[in-house]
Every structure is written in C-alpha cells, then in structure tokens.
C-alpha cells in the first residue's frame, strides 16, 4: 500500500483524536509511533489493515465510519488543502466533477506515479440519480470515496444524498469485493461554493 495512504491515516488519527490516540493506534498496530510514514515508500498492505483496525478500536467507531471520516478529512482539513485543490480540478460544478470521477485514478497516478487507486464506474440512472461502483479488491476505498464526495458536495455548495451500502459482516470494510454507492443530487446551488481558482497563491522561492 502506498506510503501516502498510511500517512493519511496517521494524519487523520492525530488531527481528529490527538497525538496520544495516535500512539495507542501505533502500539496496537505494532508500528513505531515516532517514525512518520515516508510518503513515497510503499509498505505491505497488512500494515495498512492493522493501522485501520487499530484506528477503529481506538476511536471506538466502526471501520466504515472511520474510512468515511477519513475521506471527509482529506477534503476538509487545513493540512490536506492541496488534495482538495487537486480534486476541484475535476470539474467546475459538482455534476462536472461526478462526470470526471472515472478519471480520478488516472489523475491520482499522474500526480504521484506509484499511487494506484481502484477503478471507479459512474452510471446515471433514468431518474437522474447516480450509482458509483468502486472495483475490488479493497472495499475500504468505497467508504473513503463516500466521505470525499460528501465533503466535496459541501465544497461545491451542492446538496446531495449519499447512500452507502450496508456493512456486510462477511465482506467487511477491509475485505475484498466491489462496492456500490448511490448518489442523488437534490440542489446543485444549495449554498455558496467555496472559492477555487485554477492557480494557487504565488509561492515564495
């Protein structure tokens, strides 16, 4: 699993529950709490699974909730502002963004060449609602995407209803298997969108 993913879990745990909670998570997952994850270093998938399970136990939240909160945090927290900006390049409006969703794994790989995300399929039903499919093998990505979409709908000022699948005890949030998420747009201009410009503030050299 890519180092950025482990580091995102670490950042999320520290941001939402504090450094002490992170130390407990690290202890449960049998990793060194003082050693930050190297963003570009790929570690085994079991490390990521242990991390998620430990986070779920320490935060006392079911795994799907942890993953959804992680997705929301990726978009909405201050420390991950670059991710929110990169996602907003997906489209000028939330429907535009949804229509570019299938490009998301390609965009991620373009930004960080070793970052492989599962394929996403978007179907628009006859009544205008969407079904979003996330390919196997890691169901967890589906819940993260659910959190990302909730936070991005807010960012675009759109009111949308999301309908994640019920947690299947045998599949599990960390298990294999594909994932289907329903999404209905209620009001595209429900609130003012957060500002977004194509180029960020000038950086001091």
């Amino acid at each position: 699993m890519h180092g950025l993913i482990n580091r995102a879990i670490q950042g999320f745990a520290i941001d939402t529950a504090g450094p002490d909670a992170w130390r407990r998570v690290a202890r449960e997952a049998a990793i060194d709490p003082n050693q930050p994850f190297m963003p570009l270093m790929v570690r085994n998938t079991p490390v990521t699974h242990r991390l998620l399970q430990a986070t779920s136990r320490v935060l006392e939240k079911p795994a799907p909730v942890v993953l959804e909160d992680l997705g929301t945090w990726l978009v909405a927290s201050r420390g991950t502002a670059p991710i929110r900006r990169l996602l907003r390049f997906g489209g000028e409006t939330f429907p535009d963004f949804l229509n570019s969703l299938e490009d998301l794994p390609g965009r991620a790989r373009l930004a960080v060449s070793g970052l492989h995300l599962p394929a996403i399929r978007l179907c628009q039903d006859r009544d205008g609602s969407y079904t979003i499919g996330v390919d196997a093998p890691h169901r967890g990505y589906g819940y993260v995407l659910c959190g990302i979409l909730r936070a991005l709908a807010d960012d675009y000022g759109t009111l949308a209803l999301l309908d994640p699948p019920p947690e299947e005890p045998d599949a599990g949030a960390f298990g294999a298997g594909s994932f289907h998420l329903g999404l209905t747009l209620i009001d595209v201009s429900f609130a003012e969108a957060r500002a977004f410009s194509l180029v960020g503030p000038e950086r001091g050299e």
Binding site: A111, S197, E202
Partner: peptide, 30 residues
C-alpha cells in the same frame, strides 16, 4: 491564469490547459 483570473470556461474543452495546471499544482504539492 493568475494575472487575468481565468477559469476553466476560458479554455476550449479540448485544450489541455486545465490538465497542465493540475499537474503544476500536483508538482507543487509533491
């Protein structure tokens, strides 16, 4: 884009300008 406050609508649909700006942004982040 910075000087003239351009947005996606100012470029042709087939223009890769937005993808280019996305890459610039991604490069800065990384």
């Amino acid at each position: 884009v910075r000087q003239y406050h351009l947005n996606a609508g100012d470029f042709a649909e087939t223009d890769l300008a937005i993808e280019m700006l996305y890459l610039v942004e991604a490069k800065h982040a990384v």
